[in-house]
Structure formats: structure tokens, C-alpha cells
Design a protein around this nucleic acid. Sequence first.
DNA 1: AGTTATACCCGGACGC
DNA 2: TGCGTCCGGGTATAAC
Length: 269
Amino acid sequence: MPELPEMETYRQQLTRLIQGAPITGTEVTRPKSLNVEPDSFIRKLTGNRIIRIDRRAKHLLFHLVSGEVLLLHLMLGGWMFYGTEDEKPDRTTQVVIHFGTKHLYFIGLRLGYLHMHSLPEVDLLLGKLGPEPLDSSFTFPQFQQVLKSKKSNLKLSFVDQSFLSGIGNCYSDEICFYAGILPLRKLSSLTEEEQNRLFQAMRSVLLEAIQFGGYIDEPLFIGDRLTGQFDAKCRVYDREGEPCLRCGHPLIKTEVSSRKCFYCANCQA
DNA sequence: AGTTATACCCGGACGC
DNA sequence: TGCGTCCGGGTATAAC
């Protein structure tokens, strides 16, 4: 669910909201979300500070003064809220980190987690991830190399985190639509011109989604006007039967290896 | 090696 | 309104 643009939006906003702020308390209501005992987790966080927030693929890395890293993956349906107890949405929370009167609430962590690691451990854990699609050092020739690394179709390749990292079910469809290429196309069938269109589409879609705060429909804090604006700008995802924004033909929904997949049969080839 | 099936997890939406 | 049922979906791992 939350993919690269959603996590990047969280990273940017949280950096502004909590970077450097003293952690005054920690609550754990779902120990399964953690990789250490709740007591130990609370002890490690309380009194500590987050000095920097990085994003790698769909993960956020909260770097603590102590040198340890809190590694967050929201998986499906996970989201966050920052604010006072009064402002908190009426949802079950799994972990809460206190910053004085305002708290960071972790909500919807089912398969999602908050794991405490040393820096080398994090490097090891994230080592198998493919390149960051928006990294300035990730150029078109490198994209072409990556395309050679798999024999499958576009849909499955885009959601494979060892192929490219950070793209999930929604943005894979959005990128294919923007490029005018069917998600079921085999990588080996792509012409160089199509490869180039995909590369440009990938950058455009992800950058636009970040600019508009991703598609998460819950605001991060009261008065947050950024988060979720991209939800209205998704062109194909979850729009089965709706007219294609480019040609008007009804959008098709299909299933690819038990994943939802949306496309326009008329203007994607 | 490359691809595919399966377990994991439980809040909340939905039906009656 | 209340209670029971079932879906969603990224990732690790096992199984082809």
C-alpha cells in the first residue's frame, strides 16, 4: 500500500515535525510489531532523539542519537498520525512515540513493523533491494541494464523490490499507463524507444506523486493539506470501468499472479 | 536460477 | 446495535 511517494512524503513531513525533538515516552500495545521486548524498546527510545530520517524503498530509517536505527515498514494498510491525544483519529494504535504533548501514532501495523537495529544490520537487511528509481545516479543506461535482468512482464518486474525498489501495485500500473505500454508486456519485447518512455514515465509519475503527497487518504496531522492529494490523480489504479482519461475507453481490471492490475486496452500497447 | 505458491497478520467493512 | 465473517496485499520463505 504505502509505496515510495507515500513514504517520501512521510519522510519530508516528519523531518520537519520531529527531527531533533526529545522523545518523552513510548507506548507499545502490539509487541509483535517489534523485534525486541517492549521494555527494551521503550528504554532505547525514551530520552533519545531522532537526528535524521532517511528513506530506502518503502522503508523509513529513524536514526537515533544513540547510533541505533528504528526501521519502519508499513506494509499493507499501515499509516501514521502526528498530534495531541485529542487530535488522534479514533483508530487502534500499535505503537506511540511521545514528543511532549504531541505524539507520533503508528496505526494499521498488521504485517508492518518497527524494528530496532544497528547501522550494519540495516545495511545488511536492505542490501538486496534494487536501485532507487529516482536516484540521480540511476540513469537510462542503468535502467536498460536492469530491464535485462528479468524475463518476466512489466507488472511483476515493477513490484519486485530486487528489480527496482519502492514501486508497488498502484505505481506499477500508473507508470505503464503513462508510458502507454501494457503491464503484461514481456521485458524482452520492449523496443529502445519504449524503454525510454518507461524510464521517463517512471520518473514523471513518482515525482508528481511526491509533489502531491502520495495517495494515503489520512492526513499526517491536523491541517495537513499535502498528504493524499495524489489519490485524485491516479489515472488507472482502482478505476475499473471508468473512462480512460486519455481516450475515454473504459479501463480494464485484470489479475496478474493474484495482484490487481488496471490498464487501458485502447491506448496502451 | 528463476519463478510461483503460501503463510503471515487483524482491523474494519460488511451482512444479517 | 451487535455479533460473526472475511478480505486485503507486501514480503519472506518454501516449493516447484
